[in-house]
């Protein structure tokens, strides 16, 4: 967890306008992302998610909180898809929570929403 916190802190220092946060919740790692997943940021977010996933032992869940993500481009969607595939390969359950209506609608239009497991605590 310490290593993951370091990774997230480094990301936030590099991207102060779109910081990320991390917390432990009932044994699961909750990664909070923010900002706009456009062509500039998507690659960085994908790198962050890959680093966090690689740190997680098999079976430990990663919950990605998207409450503060207000825009997602196709590259942003690609980043989340790639991360989900990576997590599945490593046997890390990958869940999303607090997806805004707008972001959800993009995933829905693309027919990709059902691939992303929703966190149970997501209202």
């Amino acid at each position: 967890m310490i290593r993951i916190t370091q990774i997230v802190d480094r990301f936030s220092a590099l991207h102060p306008e779109t910081p990320a946060s991390v917390a432990e919740e009932r044994g699961r790692v909750v990664l909070g992302l923010s900002g706009s997943f456009d062509i500039k940021l998507a690659g960085e977010v994908e790198g962050l998610l890959a680093s966090v996933i690689d740190q997680l032992e098999a079976g430990r869940s990663l919950v990605v909180d998207l409450a503060a993500v207000y825009y997602v481009s196709s590259t942003g969607i690609g980043a989340l898809v790639t991360s989900l595939v990576r997590a599945q390969r490593r046997n890390v359950p990958f869940l999303v929570r607090n997806m805004t209506k707008k972001v959800r609608s993009v995933f829905d239009i693309l027919g990709l929403l059902h691939f992303f497991s929703k966190d149970e605590s997501d209202d």
Partner: peptide, 21 residues
């Protein structure tokens, strides 16, 4: 059209990952 192609690619990857799982 580009997004449609990407979507197919993403779906294939996700389906493959699910099948692998």
């Amino acid at each position: 059209e580009r997004i449609r192609s990407e979507r197919e690619f993403w779906k294939s990857n996700l389906e493959l990952a699910e099948a692998n799982l």
